[in-house]
Write a protein that binds this DNA or RNA. Structure first.
Length: 399
DNA sequence: AAGCAACCCAACCGCCGTTTC
DNA sequence: TGAAACGGCGGTTGGGTTGCT
């Protein structure tokens, strides 16, 4: 069914003249005082030879006083990429996370700029996965760099910075625009995995947690995204690491809200694999989903004593090994640095260790505002967060 | 300076879901 | 209850601009 107004013969099309803009603005300003009820009546009331739909579009995309013009900032670009990874081409939803930007503007920016950057970096702009050619390139041969350039590019807001080859097995996620960088270096003995990271909004609160949870999300989201069926009823943010080589989840961790008092053993089904996570107050737990073995337990702000507790927990759970590459520093508070270490099943197999270092120290006050996720976004995540569905429904019910 | 191609982005088109009658 | 009207959205188009030869 078409629009009634669009079938009119005497409507003008094409670019708007300054006079038309003025008429529409004048009408909309007066209508905002008295209230305007339907767009189809706007052309007649405003004295325009346009269809109502065209007026609406012109107002929303251009004439609205709160429309933000000008080039997109790196922060905005990062947000677009992050949210697009989760939502896909839902431009209106993405635009809601960019105050003053319209869906049309975001869409155009994506098509004209971001898309090309991703393709240039060997990423499929639709899925954010590595393109086949890039996968071959990155994984071909034992000395593949595991996409470090690619990840650096992503986490650096599109400014590709060469990732320095390192002899260690650590990779770093930095959410600081100034410090942005992401390094992946293969283990010395054998290549293990290229990890994908997914940050899932808290299923209970419907948004990424304030402060460093958001920073963490912003920092880790550029690592890319896959539909991931895992969710925790906790106050934290779930970060999943996915082994791209094996095509399975390698490990997952949940950064807990430090003030949370919840403690539970949750069972999750992730991509057909059962994933048990111990979401205790004091520990964020890595779970090797390939071997269904505990890998390590790190917690925001965990001290030596807490680490010992975590180790005991692991022992209780019959786990094999816990490797701490360095003492974790404080986490989840403003200006904090998060450090976590994971020993994956693959790493265990070849006696190598992967270290995850999440830093948000220099993120600054500008970060959080754009990283808030609303219920609709959460709902979108719920499409692949099986466990989150009930929580979303409950939230809606509560609202 | 002219011609051409690539790019950008405002606007249009068509579809879908919701509301109204 | 069903059709019409409407708002909203994502995909696409085409005119203007810019850069290159």
């Amino acid at each position: 069914m078409g629009h009634h107004c669009c079938s009119q013969q005497n409507v003008k099309r094409g670019l708007w003249s300054p006079e038309e803009d003025e008429r529409l603005v004048r009408y909309m300003v007066s209508a905002s005082e008295h209230g305007h009820n339907c767009w189809s009546s706007v052309p007649r009331l405003a004295g325009l030879q346009r269809c109502g739909k065209s007026c609406r579009l012109r107002w929303i995309n251009y004439l609205r006083p709160d429309v933000k013009r000008g080039a997109f900032s790196e922060e905005e670009e990062r947000t677009i990429i992050d949210v697009h990874r989760i939502l896909g081409n839902r431009w209106a939803q993405i635009a809601k996370h960019l105050p003053g930007r319209t869906d049309n503007e975001v869409k155009n920016f994506w098509n004209s700029c971001i898309k090309k950057k991703l393709i240039a970096q060997g990423l499929d702009p639709r899925t954010h996965n590595l393109l086949p050619a890039s996968t071959t390139l990155l994984h071909g041969g034992g000395g593949a760099n595991h996409g470090s350039d690619l990840a650096s590019f992503q986490s650096n807001g599109g400014n590709c910075a060469a990732a320095a080859p390192a002899a260690t097995t650590s990779f770093t996620i930095s959410s600081s625009p100034a410090k942005a960088g992401f390094e992946v270096a293969p283990p010395a003995m054998a290549p293990t995995s290229l990890y994908d990271a997914i940050v899932v909004p808290n299923p209970v609160t419907g948004m990424l947690m304030a402060n460093d949870h958001q920073h963490l999300a912003a920092a880790s989201a550029p690592l890319l995204g896959y539909p991931y069926t895992d969710a925790s009823i906790s106050d934290g943010v779930l970060l999943s690491l996915r082994d791209q080589n094996a095509g399975v989840h390698a490990s997952s961790m949940d950064f807990m809200n430090a003030s949370s008092s919840s403690s539970s053993m949750d069972q999750h089904v992730a991509g057909g694999m059962i994933n048990y996570n111990d979401f205790s107050t004091s520990a964020a737990v890595f779970m090797d989903e390939t071997t269904t073995m505990w890998a390590t337990a790190i917690e925001p702000g965990m001290g030596v004593a807490e680490m010992e507790v975590a180790q005991q927990q692991q022992q209780v759970l019959g786990q094999q090994e816990m490797v701490l590459a360095r003492p974790p520093t404080t986490l989840m508070n403003d200006g904090a640095t998060a450090t976590a270490t994971a020993t994956t099943g693959a790493a265990l197999a070849d006696k190598s260790v992967d270290t995850v270092d999440v830093s948000s120290a220099a993120y600054g006050a500008a970060g959080p505002s754009t990283a808030l996720f609303d219920l609709e976004l959460l709902d979108s995540c719920g499409m692949f967060c099986g466990g989150a569905g009930n929580a979303i429904d409950q939230l809606r019910w509560d609202c």
